[in-house]
Nucleic acid binder design. Structure first.
Lengths: 370, 370
DNA sequence: TTTTAGCACTCTATGATTACGAGTGCTAAA
DNA sequence: TTTAGCACTCGTAATCATAGAGTGCTAAAA
């Protein structure tokens, strides 16, 4: 199970069992306390069978392996990014959400089932609350968009508003300018003709039939194709987020320093966010697979101070979006990963019902649950 | 000209000419320097005809009127919120944007004219850059929405996706559940019938004709009415913002304190933001009127640390949105107000062209300018 | 060979003390 | 009414001493 990305497992030296235990405890303790953790504290708090001195020796070993650091000579140790990575890859056990919380969340989604437009904001707010970090949710996009309906609306002289409805109810709109003025009636007829020909087709199919069309329709068709193509590659730019203010209260961000500013910038600058989302998710991991980026992984400077837990949701090869949590590097990964996976599953289920309804057993039987 | 809201002008005691001058200079200086300003500094920097001692006397007077404060006994004075309010209402002169900047901005909008979906993000980013604060732009909403086109898409059993296109190209979507299953063809026919009857009508008109319809169509029509009604009152929940990270770098927010957190929360919590936007804008000020909220005006706790410069844009009684800048109380109001007004004008122009094209002289002749 | 007790050492955090300087308020004279 | 002069206040920065937390090392114990 390779839920790490960009880090080869083989890079990681083996640890003895005791070292593993200690690293695990140090991470746990550090996540709780925020600060460096001391040998004595560990021994006392976890009733270890060996002495602080032994712990110190092991700590020194873990430090020379690059998994721990000291802020200064006479402080305790805290995990490095590599330490967290090792932890996530090898030591962490997933902490699934308490059943009561799962039910509460499922119930919220159940109640929102008819209001499509509220799905993503809900997912975002649930994720933020559950994880304590800032959540990010992108709208699902079809990998192979299917034409459903086109609407052409005259706005001004030769200016037209084009509204394209794709299978699954996604709506894209764009303006275009005609080479010569037309009446609304003529436009309507043109749209109807295109709708008859193109309904149910993909971009490639439409392209192959452009030759048959008169020039106006052909122009429109080309625009339609470009819109459909655009949605193939990138994640949607419809992005929902929540919980930034809570995130900024985390001790590592109160410094008002470069750290916090860069996090805000990541969440604000959509292009940057999209880059992270898409580059991470392109090497498609399977459904249910969650991807963890720790400290920007050396690739994103703005993320140096934080970690991201990400996954795709939706129906693979059909319509997927991304969904994740941004938090401090010192993050309760086990819990966050569960939360992300859980919300992704519910949301995926709802999207699935929407696309190819009633053909598979739901992961979560909403109706049965209440 | 009453561009202040919620503060009666008559509350404001008269100031002597010299006091006005000093308040003006103190505000200007404080905005520049961030800190309290000293009597000596003022005299030297602005070559005043009177001595620091005189300035101190006047300052004491202004302080007892409530327009100035001292952080501590031996510091200079800085304006209070009331001081800023007086400044904005009486002393400030608007500083219109440099012509070059106006041109640059107009050019950007001109280039984006065909991509409707980029208008608001562009407005938002321009506003943030120009003002140095965080910008907020809501999508325009029609006060009296006009039905244009309806689309019913079968998704699953009795579940339907309803897409409603309003005049001006606004698109609303919602799910609904039918009482009994139907085919896509039947739905299409129903939608076509409704489209024929309702095209060009308002909610009230539609309501009066519900009686004529068979039950399915009547159900759908009721939903359509509720959607149209919803858009009458509140500002759109489609909100664009930009520049938060820059705002958080302002000295009053680097403290990572309550102040900065509450600002982030305001911008994040849409319901709160909508409350501010709508309550402020309901007592409709005329086009071109800009509204200034200083320090939350005692009504919004979360805004205590900041000011908002807001205006409506669009076509009154037809389709309007809100647009504004959130910044520190210590804000260059003259400049910000100009920026807000300028962007609102351009955006209003574009919306106008879209709604009722070619019938009035454009405020900004895009094409002529390049 | 591994573990551990003991101790010296290092570094930070905290508080007290001091000195400095910026800016005012007041008074008395112009 | 204005202003020069001066005492006074208060915050900031620097310096210093101290306490305490935690380690690293050494030598003894297991």
């Amino acid at each position: 199970m390779d839920n790490q990305q960009g880090t080869k497992m083989t890079d990681m030296p083996e640890l003895t069992e005791r070292q593993s235990l200690l690293l695990k405890l140090i991470v746990r303790e550090h996540v709780e306390s925020t600060g460096p953790v001391a040998s004595r504290t560990l021994v006392e708090k976890y009733n270890l069978k060996f002495s602080p001195a032994t712990v110190r020796n092991e700590m020194a070993a873990l430090e020379s392996l690059g998994y721990l650091t000291q802020p200064h000579t006479s402080a305790g140790r805290m995990p490095t990014e590599a330490g967290f990575r090792y932890f996530v890859a090898r030591l962490m056990e997933e902490q699934s959400l308490p059943l009561a919380e799962q039910r509460r969340i499922a119930h919220q989604f159940y109640q929102a089932r008819d209001r499509i437009e509220s799905w993503l904001p809900l997912a975002s707010s649930v994720l933020a609350q559950t994880s304590g970090g800032a959540s990010v949710v992108t709208a699902p996009r079809t990998m192979q968009p299917v034409y459903k309906h086109l609407e052409l609306i005259l706005t001004h002289g030769r200016a037209i508003l084009l509204i394209l409805v794709l299978q699954g109810g996604m709506v894209e709109q764009q303006m275009l300018a005609l080479s010569e003025p037309m009446t609304q009636t003529a436009l309507r007829e043109a749209a109807d003709r295109l709708n008859q020909i193109f309904a149910g087709l993909r971009a490639a199919d439409i392209e192959s039939r452009i030759g048959e069309l008169p020039s106006l329709e052909a122009d429109v068709a080309r625009l339609v194709i470009s819109i459909m193509r655009k949605s193939e590659g990138m994640p949607s730019d419809e992005i929902y987020q929540h919980g930034l203010s809570e995130l900024l209260q985390e001790p590592e961000f109160v410094e008002g320093d470069v750290a916090s500013t860069s996090v805000v910038r990541v969440l604000e600058e959509r292009s940057l966010l999209q880059a992270v989302l898409s580059e991470t998710l392109t090497p498609a991991v399977g459904v249910g697979n969650v991807c963890v980026l720790i400290g920007g992984e050396g690739r994103w400077d703005e993320l140096r101070a934080c970690s991201i837990v990400l996954t795709r949701y939706g129906v693979m090869d059909y319509a997927t979006g991304a969904l994740g949590v941004v938090g401090p590097i010192r993050m309760p990964y086990g819990r966050t990963i569960s939360a992300v996976r859980f919300v992704a599953n519910i949301l995926g289920e709802m999207v699935y019902e929407m696309y190819e309804p009633g053909t598979r057993e739901p992961l979560l039987d909403f109706e049965g649950q209440f």
